[in-house]
Amino acid sequence: MTELLRLDGVACIRGDRLVFEGLSLALGRGEALWLRGPNGAGKSSLIRLAAGLLRPAAGTVTRRERIALIDEAAALDTELPLRKALDFWARVDTVDGPAVTRAMDDMALASLAEVPVSMLSTGQRKRAAMARVIASCAPIWLLDEPANGMDDAAQARLVAGIAKHRANGGAVLLASHFALGISDLAEIDMGAFV
């Protein structure tokens, strides 16, 4: 198995508070790992460590491929129509236009292509953020509460997108309050590392 992401003995301190310590994990091609636990257990902090947005207080983080991240911000220009906002990220990620079209189709967003991002509902913005991740073609997906605000149909599309990504050799690190019905999902209880 080829490891795409590895964390060895990482610790996280936010402010003066130890959030977690001694945490190790590895994700290979086709694998998915669910970070579960109550609010404040460090799920989002671990996603940010894996993304390189936070430095670990101890331990190491190794990424062997590109990443795509969903967190609380959609990271889409709210003034642009949805398609143009997604095309901007496609250029940054050096992927072609058809990748954006496929991602929009996967998340049922084609009918919203000309709608400004600022006019999208919460669920539509989450689907748009997921389309950005899909279109990136990044092998490692870091998903922090990706289903928040999504209805059942959108969650089913999210789960299908994750399954397709894994089938194509991608890896997923998922922080969520629930497992979303994803098959063959390993898990870590973040509450055990404090």
Rank of each mutant, 00 (worst) to 15 (best):
Val159Trp: 03
Ala75Ser: 14
Leu173Arg: 05
Arg166Glu: 04
Asp105Glu: 15
Glu114His: 12
Pro146Thr: 14
Ala129Asn: 12
Met1Lys: 06
Met107Asn: 03
Val61Ser: 08
Ile182Phe: 05
Ser176Thr: 03
Ala26Ser: 12
Leu185Phe: 04
Arg91Phe: 10
Arg83Lys: 15
Arg48Glu: 06
Met130Cys: 14
Asp87Trp: 12
Val133Tyr: 05
Thr78Cys: 03
Leu54Asn: 11
Glu65Asn: 01
Ala11Arg: 07
His165Cys: 03
Phe20Met: 00
Leu69Gly: 01
Arg29Trp: 00
Ala163Trp: 01
Gln155His: 07
Ala50Glu: 09
Arg36Phe: 06
Gly181Leu: 14
Gly149Lys: 11
Ala110His: 03
Asp8Glu: 13
Asn148Trp: 01
Arg91Ala: 11
Leu82Cys: 08
Ala113Tyr: 00
Pro81Thr: 13
Ala160Gln: 14
Arg29Ala: 15
Gly40Trp: 03
Ala26His: 08
Val117His: 10
Arg83Val: 04
Glu187Cys: 11
Met130Leu: 15
Arg132Cys: 08
Val133Gly: 09
Arg132Trp: 05
Pro98His: 14
Trp89Phe: 15
Ala154Ile: 03
Leu80Cys: 07
Arg83Gln: 14
Leu46Trp: 00
Gly191Glu: 00
Leu69Asp: 00
Thr122Glu: 09
Thr60Cys: 07
Leu112Ile: 02
Arg55Leu: 10
Arg125Cys: 10
Arg36His: 12
Arg66His: 11
Thr60Gly: 12
Leu49Pro: 01
Ala74Ser: 12
Val10Tyr: 04
Gln124Pro: 08
Gln155Tyr: 03
Pro56Lys: 12
Lys84Gly: 02
Ala192Asp: 13
Ala156Gly: 15
Asp87Met: 14
Lys43Met: 07
Leu33Phe: 07
Gly22His: 10
